[in-house]
């Protein structure tokens, strides 16, 4: 064992100096640096935690806001649906009313058309009846009947009042006597006499056959006309029937 006590003392001093030097240059700076870094990291972690908490709270707020928005959207949608349903109901009602109105108008028009058709039919029937009557009369017409017609014209002349006779006398023209049938000679003579007697002696007479006169005769003198015709009766009848139909239609429309 070689222990050099001077060296031992020197080594003890050396060791203590080394302890101090390393504490000064190694442990102190390193531990302080680590401590500061830890502090910084802790700070940053804390900041990160704070930021995270903040972000989470913001996220929660946003979530709430979104939920509120969704709720309000649902409410709006429900409201819109209700409004749409109401609108649809109203439109349906309106459409139904419009259809009902149209149907009523259509029915009215149909009724009117039907009435008009009936009216036209009646008039047609009336005309047909009259036409048939005329045809019948025309078929029955003969010389004897023509004489009778001349008699009726002579009667009409007889029935004229004084003013009418004077008007006729004032017309200095030829008296044209038209008839539907060829009048017999005695009827013509009789009529000529009646004209001379009742109107004026100087009037000449001229006899013509006119197809438009069905069963009748007409005396024309200037602008004046005296006529007797079975057609007049028929026209009167037609006028009466049409007046009755018009009257009935007016009542139906009312």
């Amino acid at each position: 064992m070689q222990i050099d006590w001077i060296t031992v003392a020197a080594q003890i001093v050396n060791f203590l100096v080394l302890v101090w030097l390393l504490q000064r240059f190694l442990y102190g700076p390193i531990t302080r640096a680590m401590a500061r870094r830890e502090t910084r990291i802790e700070t940053r972690l804390r900041e990160a935690r704070d930021s995270r908490a903040e972000a989470e709270s913001e996220a929660a707020e946003l979530r709430e806001a979104r939920e509120a928005l969704e709720r309000s959207r649902d409410e709006t949608l429900d409201k819109a649906r209700e409004e749409a349903a109401a609108l649809r109901a109203r439109l349906e009602d309106e459409a139904r009313e419009a259809v009902a109105e149209k149907r009523a108008a259509w029915r009215e028009r149909l009724d009117a058309e039907q009435a008009e058709f009936e009216d036209r039919l009646r008039r047609q029937m009336t005309r047909q009846v009259l036409e048939t009557t005329r045809k019948t009369l025309r078929a029955l017409a003969d010389a004897d009947l023509a004489g009778q017609v001349a008699e009726r014209l002579a009667d009409s002349l007889e029935d004229l009042d004084e003013d009418a006779r004077n008007d006729l006398a004032g017309a200095d023209e030829v008296a044209v006597i038209e008839s539907g049938l060829e009048l017999p000679a005695e009827s013509k003579a009789r009529l000529t006499r009646a004209v001379h007697r009742l109107i004026s002696d100087g009037i000449d007479t001229e006899y013509r056959v006119s197809e438009d006169l069905l069963l009748g005769a007409r005396l024309r003198l200037g602008t004046h006309t005296v006529e007797w015709s079975a057609d007049l009766y028929l026209e009167g009848l037609q006028a009466a029937v049409e007046a009755a139909l018009d009257d009935r239609r007016g009542r139906t429309a009312a």
Binding site: M1, Q2, I3, D4, W5, T7, V8, A9, A10, Q11, I12, N14, F15, L16
Partner: peptide, 10 residues
Amino acid sequence: LSTTVALALC
């Protein structure tokens, strides 16, 4: 041995 003794004494 001087060094180790010194350290042991420390």
